[in-house]
């Protein structure tokens, strides 16, 4: 069995990034990342299929983030700089390429569910099967939704 610490080191950055994209606040993201791993730790010994760690940890992160949204009203605007971590969104925008910036602008216009779908694919780097596990949908539904979204995004960007 792979040690939990190894799993933690392998996934903590991705889990944090995934949660940060959802909650948009570094401190809340840290809090939820910590809750995600504590919850995973509790049940790690019972995880029978080690290959399913990725969808499992992201499912916990996904559920805790959803819970966070249910428990507190969320805002699209971001907290001012001094409330955030050193990872400044501004800096990210500044050093990103023009196309990347436009893609991210379009992604921000998508619904939370659609943004989540993309984050699971590109940030969490999950397969469609794993994404389906996290989202509790069947694989073909997830695949269809994903490609529909990609084509829509591409067309939107090409039209502009």
């Amino acid at each position: 069995m792979i040690s939990f610490e190894s799993r933690y080191l392998e996934f903590v950055d991705k889990v944090y990034w995934y949660i940060l994209l959802k909650v948009k606040n570094a401190r809340e993201a840290e809090d939820l990342t910590s809750q995600t791993f504590v919850k995973a730790y509790q049940s790690y010994s019972a995880l029978r299929d080690q290959d399913k760690f990725a969808p499992w940890i992201f499912k916990i992160a996904h559920n805790l983030s959803m819970d966070y949204f249910r428990h507190s009203k969320q805002y699209s605007a971001e907290a001012p700089n001094w409330l955030q971590s050193e990872d400044e969104d501004l800096l990210s925008n500044a050093i990103n390429s023009e196309l990347s910036r436009r893609i991210q602008m379009e992604i921000k216009r998508l619904s939370k569910e659609e943004q989540d779908l993309l984050a699971l694919r590109f940030v969490a780097q999950l397969t469609f099967k794993e994404m389906a596990t996290v989202l509790r949908r069947n694989v073909s539904t997830v695949k269809k939704q994903y490609y529909k979204l990609i084509i829509l995004l591409r067309n939107t960007l090409e039209e502009k």
Binding site: L99, R101, I103, Q104
Partner: peptide, 16 residues
């Protein structure tokens, strides 16, 4: 291109 557009955000070292 979408993948490239996501710039990684890392947690604080102290937190990790």
């Amino acid at each position: 291109e979408i993948e490239k557009s996501y710039l990684p955000q890392f947690p604080r070292k102290e937190f990790k």
